[in-house]
Design a protein around this nucleic acid. Sequence first.
DNA 1: CCCATATCGTTTGTGTACACACGATGACAT
DNA 2: ATGTCATCGTGTGTACACAAACGATATGGG
Lengths: 157, 157
Amino acid sequence: MRSNVAKKQLESKTTTGTASRPYRIEEQVGYLLRRAHQRASAIFQVGIGDPNITPTQYSSMVKLNEYTELSQNLLGRLVGMDKATMQGVVRRLKERGLVDSRPDPGDARRTLLSLTTEGNRLVTKLLLNGPAVSRETLKPLSQQEQRQLLDLLSRIV
Amino acid sequence: MRSNVAKKQLESKTTTGTASRPYRIEEQVGYLLRRAHQRASAIFQVGIGDPNITPTQYSSMVKLNEYTELSQNLLGRLVGMDKATMQGVVRRLKERGLVDSRPDPGDARRTLLSLTTEGNRLVTKLLLNGPAVSRETLKPLSQQEQRQLLDLLSRIV
DNA sequence: CCCATATCGTTTGTGTACACACGATGACAT
DNA sequence: ATGTCATCGTGTGTACACAAACGATATGGG
């Protein structure tokens, strides 16, 4: 009973005169994004080829593979990670000998990051599995729908 | 140079004869889902009306508001949370006096959860802001695109 | 040159998120 | 009734994710 009060109040119109649908948590973007992200992470974990590499570690390594050397902060911006989060990701990659760092000779505030030989070898291997992971995640959709989803997602990011 | 080797190898065909595009991390579903989820969470945090309530806490409370009483495990399934994750979410909600628990009289393994009066009052208030949060998150898209995105997301979950 | 301001990386604290192991309980077949 | 197997909640360990505060360094204006 109590809950119906809340639901009623939510049935206000949006912009059009169309009656808005009841508020269901399962139909909200945020909720769906969380669930979809969970599933994508699970597929990544089993499909990328190394159970100890996480999605964020992977994207960091891919970016370092592209740019050779990057400051920690710039890398964070490129892969969409908070600097505090980046700190942990980099620390773990360094502990595993996949990433190296040196002070930026031109700016004492910065740390320059690069892949080690082993890091380079590992990304090269994982990159072979990358497309399959994406394909598996998108499998429920047709080719056209896959493109649509990628387009829509990139526009709300 | 080294990285070009990896990229070359990834340019294998998918199913059709179409030349596949180069592998860019920014175009992969998993990456886009992570970024989109980040943005949705940020919008939620400022828009839901209580900075101390997180998206998972919110969806748990909404479900408890719908069902009145649920076992912790079932609630977890309904909102897509691991039981270990659920444990933490419920503990925090209980600490704040928003949720109550009692042993299931018919099954000693289960804990039954419900909203307290205060929890009920809070969800009712937050539910008023829910639609605006979703609207804000989807703002970059047209009405039709919004529906499409929700449809595509629910199909890959 | 100096000062206000900004950037960079670190640290701390809180909160998801999941794997794994554990103990208690329930369900079911023999 | 008993033993096997599943379910439920808990605890531990690891890893994102971000806010806030901090010290060190850089930059640009006066």
